[in-house]
């Protein structure tokens, strides 16, 4: 297999007369951390939902882990992990019960569930919270747990939709440590964010404005191209021309 994890060509999604995603073309290499940056309402989540097999595109082509998004959505789902904006663990189940459930429906064996569950708890340093209800965990812990559960089946690619929304800077930093660890294990990370300091952590970044990809390169190259000091300024220069209102 080639070293391309995700390939999108003129990918478009229209809702009635509104074009949420407008002919975007990009590729993500295996093992890289790919930042998908854009203002609220720029079309990041819609694009990500297409790649996860949750939404069928209107036109264009895309392959994820070598599978076509039109024909093989269910095969894609076996190979990816996903962490949505909305918190996706069951609050009325305990930490270990959530792990067991998600690992179980991805088809892990009982032994694997036990081993990887213990490993996960150790990595997060919450061995003593295995029997705690998720509802009573602090938000930062919940986010880290949700991420770890999303990669428990060791997918080829993990999609993270604004994973650090609403958490403090220290927790965000810890969260990014988890992302780096996952990338070290060979998992391709596709992450949307509108925190520009997070964009700096990525190997490559694409900036979406009004459904289009207006810039696509490494953070260093982008800064050079726009002759600015930070990704924040790159983003500001691109996004200030946006016509679409944030929703």
């Amino acid at each position: 297999m080639s070293n391309i994890a995700i390939q999108a060509d003129k990918l478009t999604k229209r809702f009635d007369d509104f074009t949420a995603v407008d002919a975007i073309t990009f590729d993500v290499r295996q093992g890289e951390i790919f930042g998908f940056v854009g203002a609220n309402g720029a079309g990041k989540t819609t694009a990500m939902r297409i790649l996860c097999g949750l939404s069928i595109p209107t036109s264009g082509t895309a392959t994820v882990a070598g599978f076509d998004v039109y024909k093989d959505a269910e095969k894609i789902k076996k190979n990816i992990g996903y962490m949505s904006q909305k918190f996706s663990l069951y609050e009325d189940l305990t930490v270990m019960e959530n792990i067991t459930f998600y690992a179980g429906i991805y088809g892990l064996s009982n032994q694997e569930i036990k081993d990887r569950g213990a490993e996960l708890l150790t990595r997060l340093g919450i061995e003593h919270e295995a029997k705690t209800f998720v509802a009573s965990l602090p938000l930062g812990w919940k986010q880290k747990l949700a991420f770890s559960v999303a990669v428990i089946h060791r997918p080829k690619i993990v999609f993270l939709d604004e994973p650090t929304g609403g958490v403090d800077p220290v927790t965000r930093r810890q969260f990014w440590d988890l992302i780096y660890e996952a990338a070290d294990r060979g998992i391709t990370v596709f992450v949307t964010t509108h925190y520009m300091d997070e964009a700096e952590y990525c190997n490559r970044v694409s900036v979406m404005v009004d459904g289009r990809i207006d810039a696509f390169d490494t953070p260093a190259n982008l800064k050079k191209k726009f002759s600015v000091e930070s990704m924040n300024e790159v983003f500001y220069q691109l996004a200030r021309g946006a016509k679409r209102k944030a929703d």
Partner: peptide, 13 residues
């Protein structure tokens, strides 16, 4: 409503 369906839908269930 709580959003967990999204997580279910992205699994090969």
């Amino acid at each position: 409503e709580i959003g967990t369906i999204e997580q279910i839908n992205v699994t090969p269930i």
